[in-house]
């Protein structure tokens, strides 16, 4: 078997392992990637993340629902844990991807969507500062200042907590206008954040998950250009 052929085979094992939520298969394939000297970043993006992209399609087609998505995410993480330590700066274009502060706002204890979005950042090589859930608004501001993160990602699953997101945006913008702010699953640039305001919230855990997976797809497109 040629090297390229073998690479394709391992990518397929990772991809299928994520789609079929077979954690053990993913772990084995990830270990083989390393043992056989293949590129870890390639395996993450074109194996694991590509698998998650298909999971998103299955969700759109109403073949998969949230329980399946969560298990696919577990399988992806199982592979990421093995591969991530072997990703080099060179893989990431010679500079670290940046830092993200993430959390669900106060009043909201639902973190399924947030955890999937967090996974997306980790796949892409970001350093993630996860504040958890039910996070007081000031904490986002403090953590952004402390870490000098470029992105603050706020998640709120419920209509009733999205008001809090609007306040956080204002507080962060006052202190640091250049920070990019993401709400729920929708990405917002520093220029449009005010305009976007509280509209970019996810209506349900399902929607947030869907948005997050779409972002993985967009990221893969960018990487492959």
């Amino acid at each position: 078997m040629g090297k390229e052929e073998r690479r394709e085979e391992l990518l397929k094992e990772l991809h299928e392992g994520v789609v079929e939520f077979e954690e053990d298969q993913v772990k084995e394939a990830a270990q083989k990637v390393l043992d056989e000297g293949f590129n870890a970043y390639d395996a993450v993006m074109n194996g694991l993340a590509a698998g998650m992209e298909e999971v998103g399609e299955l969700y759109d087609q109403q073949e998969y629902f949230v329980p399946e998505l969560l298990m696919c995410a577990d399988a992806l993480y199982a592979g990421l844990d093995i591969l991530q330590p072997h990703i080099t700066l060179e893989d990431l274009g010679d500079k670290p991807k940046g830092q993200v502060v993430i959390g669900t706002v106060q009043g909201d204890v639902h973190d399924i969507g947030k955890n999937i979005i967090k996974m997306m950042f980790e796949v892409a090589g970001f350093t993630v500062h996860d504040l958890g859930r039910d996070v007081p608004l000031e904490k986002f501001v403090e953590e952004q200042l402390r870490t000098d993160s470029e992105i603050v990602a706020l998640s709120a699953m419920m209509t009733t907590t999205m008001m809090g997101m609007e306040k956080v945006i204002k507080m962060i913008k006052e202190k640091n206008p250049d920070v990019a702010i993401m709400l729920g699953g929708a990405p917002v640039t520093s220029d449009t954040a005010d305009l976007f305001g509280a509209d970019g919230y996810a209506e349900s855990a399902g929607n947030a998950v869907q948005e997050a997976i779409k972002m993985i797809s967009r990221l893969r497109e960018m990487q492959n250009k």
């Binding site: 109403q62 629902f65 949230v66 329980p67 349900s204 855990a205 399902g206």
Partner: peptide, 8 residues
């Protein structure tokens, strides 16, 4: 069905 399948 945002979360669960009709079958579930």
């Amino acid at each position: 069905t945002d979360l669960l399948s009709p079958r579930m």
